[in-house]
Amino acid sequence: MSAKNPRNQYLRTERMPNIWCPGCGLGTAVNCFISAIEDCETPLDQISVVSGIGCTGRVAGYLKLDSFHTTHGRPIPFATGLKLSNPKLKVVVFSGDGDLFAIGGNHFIHAARRNMDLTIICVNNFTYGMTGGQVTPTTPIDAFSSTTPYGNIEEPFNLPFLADCSGAVYVARWTVFHVRQAARAMREAMHKNGFSFIEIISPCPTLYGRRNKIGDGLKMMQAFKDNSVIADETDTRNVALDFRGKIICGKFVDREKTSFLDMYNIKMAERFGPFYEPYEGIK
């Protein structure tokens, strides 16, 4: 019983137990990320995690890496600055659907357009968990939330399609039930040179599951298990989520594109020729 959990070396154990509700999938998503960085040959001091506000924003505080908890919706601008000042870092943005797509939606599409070399892990629980279960841009039609007491009437975002058409080089979706696949996707995304996006579908038993009569965290996990279909290389136009419909999981996009910093160096070298010294971070 005295043996220590091998994950503790990546966690700030003095902050445990975490604040997440019983049955929340966020800790499972963190386990997947820990598994990804364990197998990654990058030294830990060259990985940094940035997160925004919300339940998922707590991840930066729980991981024993160089991490930053930014203001609401702004993890991607902060991560962009971090990456540009020190291009050797692997910068991972770990945040929620509300933070990345409602408050920080513009930052997301422009970082994807520039092909900034970031890894975005979006934990999608279909609601604003920390503030009381309001409707988000990813809440499916007909789902109940505290601000849609007669069911949601707004069309939700199809996040993989948004990332794909904004220019991301790697797009995948997994649920927290698919722990091994999600860990593999995070590992692949961190090795990818360019903007990579992973959507992790997670249960929110306290606010989403309870209001929509899905049940506790375990019931939601069972629902993910029963309703998910693994279909790699699916066209992202066809992977939108319905209320209680099928969840299409898999790696949808994996392509090569010149990243922002490579493009900068190529274009400046074209312009200034031998006088240009390629930018490799602030000296």
């Binding site: 966690l11 445990m16 137990p17 997440w20 049955g23 999938g25 499972t28 963190v30 386990n31």
Partner: peptide, 10 residues
């Protein structure tokens, strides 16, 4: 251990 959200088992 992979599933535990509270890092309580391995």
């Amino acid at each position: 251990g992979m599933y535990c959200p509270d890092f309580a088992i391995f």
